[in-house]
Structure formats: C-alpha cells, structure tokens
Simulated scan of single mutants.
Amino acid sequence: MSAAFDRDALLDAFDQIGRAAVEAGTKLQIAVYGGSALMLASNFRLATEDVDIRELGTDWPEWLSQAVTEIAAKNGWSATWFNDAVTFHLSPLASHDRDHLAYGTFPRRSEHVGLSVFIPTARYMLALKLKSLRISDFDKGAQDMSDAAHLLKVLGLTDVEQAIGVLAEFFPRSAADADKQRFVLKRLLAGDTAIDAPQYPRTDG
C-alpha cells in the first residue's frame, strides 16, 4: 500500500519538480485538483495519496518522468502519485482564468521558477465534488461528502438548489439528473461541518 502524504511533503515534492524544470531549462504549468488541491489550499483536508493534474497535452518530458519516479521511490509513494487521470472528469465549460487561482511557484525561496501551480476556485471544486458523488465508493464518498460540506460553508450556500446551480454552471447534464446530489446536500446542509470556519483558499500561506 502506498504511503499517504501531507501538505509539507507535497510542497517539498513540488520544489523538487521545480528544480528539475529549472535544470532542464524549461517551465511547467499545472492545475491541481481533488484532495491534493484541498490539502494545499484549505484548512480541512490534511492528507492525500495522489496528485491529480490536468493533462499536459504532450508526452511527458524525460526530466519530469525522472523527477516523479525519484520522488515516489524516496517517499514510498505510489508510482502513479502524480497523474492526469482526472482530466476525463473535468468540465469543458471551465476556463483557466475565471475558474482557477494561482497557488504558487516552485522551487520556493528561489529567484528561478520551474513550476507554477494553479488550483480550481471553490465554486469549481464544489461542482467537481458534487459530480463525483455519482460514482464514489463508500470510503471515498464519505471523504467527498466531508469536502463538499466544507466547501458549501466556504461559499455561504445554505440551500440545496443554490448548490445544484453551482453544479449546473460546470456540469449541466449532471445537474439535470441530480437526485443523488439533492439527497446528499439535504443531509450536508442539515448537519455541522467538522471545522467551524473552513477556508479555501487558506490565508496563512
């Protein structure tokens, strides 16, 4: 079983990828999704097992493949800890400028930038979480529901149809047949989230 990792470990990994990019004389820009984005930029997700990125569009350069492999071996992480499988689940209606936020550049504390990381906005992240409720297994579903509950509070949404409206912005087909989402949202909005003041993005850097 692969080891889970926390925010500090992921930031260190991004530093290593950033340094590898600088040494290769190039720059890499990625958008990070799912639990890894929440772990980086929220105060309510503490660990994850992989990093979901948008498809790079070309074959991975050798320097990136090597860096990712070295990081996995050093930390005992899955060989697929850094992957673009999430691309299939992203919304074609989402735009980079409107629906993503700049998170940071790597390596940190360096005048040279090799890696720039972006994360989805809270609205887009909530839509992704609500869409994933349709296909989640029990364990992942429980985590997705917890994430969704915190994002609802971040966005100040208190009504089921408000949340379905967010889903419709990005996934109109899912919103048109959202019985499961409505059932889950009623439960989430009737309960308390684990953290009274969830943040996304977090403000402590």
Rank of each mutant, 00 (worst) to 15 (best):
A3C: 00
E169M: 10
E161T: 04
I135R: 15
D99M: 12
E111G: 11
V184G: 00
E49V: 15
W60I: 06
V154Q: 05
P172F: 11
Y124R: 12
G191N: 03
L152I: 07
Q29Y: 00
R108Q: 13
V117L: 06
S146Y: 05
S65R: 14
T87Q: 15
A73Y: 13
A178H: 03
F118M: 13
R123P: 04
D97H: 13
G57D: 10
F138G: 01
A3V: 12
A94Y: 05
P172Y: 10
A3W: 00
H112T: 07
D12L: 08
S95M: 05
T69M: 08
L133W: 05
D147C: 01
T87P: 00
I119W: 10
M1C: 06
G35C: 02
L128I: 05
L185E: 07
G57E: 01
D52L: 09
I119M: 10
G57C: 07
T80C: 01
A41G: 06
P107Q: 08
F88G: 03
S95N: 04
D144V: 11
Q66C: 00
T87S: 15
R202P: 01
T193E: 11
R134S: 14
Y124N: 07
W63M: 04
R19H: 09
G25M: 03
G114H: 05
L46A: 12
V32Q: 05
K140Q: 09
K186I: 07
T80F: 15
A41T: 03
E23D: 14
R108F: 02
I135H: 12
R123G: 02
F88H: 14
L93Y: 08
